[in-house]
Design a protein around this nucleic acid. Structure first.
Lengths: 122, 122
DNA sequence: TAATCATATTCAAATCCGTGAATATGATTA
DNA sequence: TAATCATATTCACGGATTTGAATATGATTA
């Protein structure tokens, strides 16, 4: 039980919560970025070239569906996936749909958060 | 490439087509019924207690997303899943969401199609 | 406590989706 | 070809989703 929206609901509602969260290009892109571990909102925003408030909106959907979790560290909030099974699902759907190995809408800007700056890569 | 909606589209559109098709209680219920092989529309309609035209609408979505295929035999049209990987995905999402093993909205009426009548079960 | 930083929230408009109702299509049989 | 059967399609409306814009919140530092 990874979210609280699954109790006493019509059949398949619990699954719908997850499918709904995954049915969105930007949210899928966010998950792709999170494949290699946690990232802060500012990094996701810069990397995906989307406004911060918009990324926040999508992160909230992902968080409320139970797919990601957040952790605050000073100024930054770092998001990560709760259960890596989600990647198997995404990969499965990708295989089903015959899509290529995900062409990410990449890196418009540099993220200036501490962890990104220290890495100094990507 | 199991559907035609995956070419020259924005990133993750192909995956979205599948996620969208799966994000629907009745369509998930239909897939559950199709776990044990092909079934005609009248059976799905009777078994799930939904009007035939409504089941048809949902089957069209599933078919256009490439998840199911149809086969005509006389009066009846039989639907079946194209790739059983879809069940692994559904099961994965179910595990992820912590849902129970799918409580189907079951059997209101009897289907009178040839294949159902001959089986004379369920 | 005031300024600053990253992040979250609210609001509204446009679009999309779900679904009932009615009806069309197309194969089959008489 | 007319009747009948299973299935498919169209239409319309109400509700949900998407997304830009503006702003709020809350932690941190000076």
């Amino acid at each position: 039980m990874i979210n609280d929206q699954t109790k006493n609901k019509p059949p398949f509602e619990a699954e719908s919560v997850v499918f709904k969260a995954l049915n969105h290009p930007v949210r899928l892109a966010i998950l792709e970025v999170l494949r290699d571990g946690e990232h802060c909102v500012c990094h996701l925003s810069a990397y995906l070239g989307q406004r911060q408030s918009y990324i926040s909106q999508q992160l909230i959907v992902l968080r409320e569906s139970g797919l990601v979790q957040d952790r605050r560290d000073g100024w930054n909030v770092y998001y990560s996936v709760v259960n890596s099974l989600v990647f198997e699902i995404v990969d499965g759907v990708r295989a089903l749909s015959g899509a290529e190995a995900s062409t990410l809408p990449i890196a418009q800007t540099e993220c200036t958060c501490p962890s990104c700056s220290s890495k100094k890569s990507n």
